[in-house]
Simulated scan of single mutants.
Amino acid sequence: MHARAVAATTTALLGTAALLLPVHDARAGGAVRPTVIAHRGASAYAPENTLAAVDEAAARGVVWVENDVQRTKDGELVVIHDDSLRRTTDVEEVFPDRAPWKVADFTAAEIARLDAGGWFGPAYADTRVPTLEEYVDRVERNHQKLLLEIKNPALYPGVEAQTLKLLSNEGWLDPRHLSGRLIVQSFSADSLRTVHDLKPAVRTGLLGTPPVAELPSYAGFADLVNPSHTTLSRSYVDAVHALTGPHGRRMEVFAWTVDDAPAARTVAGYGVDGIISNKPDVVRRAVYWY
């Protein structure tokens, strides 16, 4: 379904979204089925980290979406994966003399001029890089949940406090969102520790696969450990699950980025709590109906 046709059907489709949450399945001996998270939105079907990708995830009945946050030259938080605009926009054409086209070297107004969808396909020409405010508003409108990654925090001093302030201003730090609609993740343990210190109620996830011996050192400020699926084993998942996170609950594991049915079944068999995918519908079919 094209993203422009989503709005009228989102509410009805998300009526079945409970199927995507972790559930006990009698057919699998009571095993818990993992949550499915749309990586950068449903990015196999719409340009990544755009509002179109959020809507595409909603159209496919996916409740959780993941995104990446960086900061512009004039301090605006925008949703884009790379620290350069080159791969996912037409910045080289619009600003040919501004190499290496780093996000931090452009103002929000300049980035708003860029086409962030034409590279994906002509149907998405003139799609824009969303601000974080626009992004969370769309996620809210679609009744979805957000796995927000603070990207390259070392490049953007104070980005943790700025991100939390924006989330607060948009109503995302109230008890309803904090209890089950928001997780902040990062590859940087220091960044996650800062998020936890600033707002202890926010659930946080550490990206990567730290050695098992180091896992207890993260349990004080990280609720999840989110590794690449290629690094996982049942014993590693069990080691994470053996720990209690900062909110008094068992630590969880979200595996990324899984786009085919065999890999989805493998990591589901390890007992992961979530699977992050560019093709969340493929993963859903694999882990809910095999």
Rank of each mutant, 00 (worst) to 15 (best):
G220A: 02
G220S: 02
V54H: 06
P246K: 04
G41H: 07
P262R: 10
L232K: 06
L85Q: 03
L167A: 01
Y156H: 15
V212Q: 10
R138W: 11
R128E: 08
P153Q: 10
L13Q: 10
L215N: 01
G248Y: 11
G271V: 11
V237T: 07
A201C: 01
Q162V: 00
G220I: 01
A112L: 03
Q70C: 04
D25I: 03
Q162G: 00
S186Q: 10
P157I: 07
G171R: 14
E134H: 04
R249E: 15
L215V: 00
E134P: 08
T230D: 13
Y270G: 09
T266E: 15
P47S: 06
A213E: 15
A242W: 08
T127P: 02
V78M: 09
D260P: 01
V202C: 05
V23D: 07
R181T: 00
D25F: 01
I111D: 06
G121I: 05
L164T: 02
G248Q: 07
V62C: 12
R113C: 04
Y156A: 09
L232E: 03
M1T: 14
A286K: 03
L164I: 02
L167W: 11
L173H: 07
V212P: 00
P210Y: 06
G61E: 05
T127K: 01
V65H: 04
W289V: 08
L178A: 07
G271S: 12
S179V: 00
V78F: 08
S168P: 00
V267I: 14
F120W: 11
E170W: 01
E56R: 14
D126P: 00
L148K: 03
V159K: 04
T11R: 14
R193Y: 06
E76I: 01
V159M: 15
L243V: 00
E48I: 06
L148Q: 08
A31F: 00
L224F: 14
K102G: 00
F106P: 13
A28N: 06
Y270A: 10
V283I: 14
V136C: 08
S179G: 14
A12C: 00
A222W: 02
V6H: 02
V32K: 11
E170K: 15
L13T: 14
K165R: 15
P216E: 03
A31M: 04
A108W: 09
G118M: 02
Q185D: 10
G180F: 13
A154F: 13
R249G: 08
M1Y: 11
Y135M: 05
Y218D: 01
W119A: 10
P122S: 08
A59K: 12
T107E: 08
D260S: 13
L167T: 03
A17H: 11
S84W: 00
D259H: 10
N278Q: 12
E76Y: 00
A5E: 15
T127I: 05
P175C: 10
E252Q: 15
R181Y: 07
A154K: 15
L146T: 10
K279A: 15
I111N: 06
L13F: 06
G269F: 07
N49M: 03
N67E: 14
W119Q: 06
L207Q: 02
V237I: 09
E110M: 09
P175G: 06
V267Q: 04
P47G: 05
G220N: 05
V212H: 01
N152L: 09
D190V: 01
H2Y: 05
D83E: 13
A5S: 08
V54D: 03
K151D: 13
V195M: 10
K145V: 08
A18V: 09
A58G: 13
D281P: 01
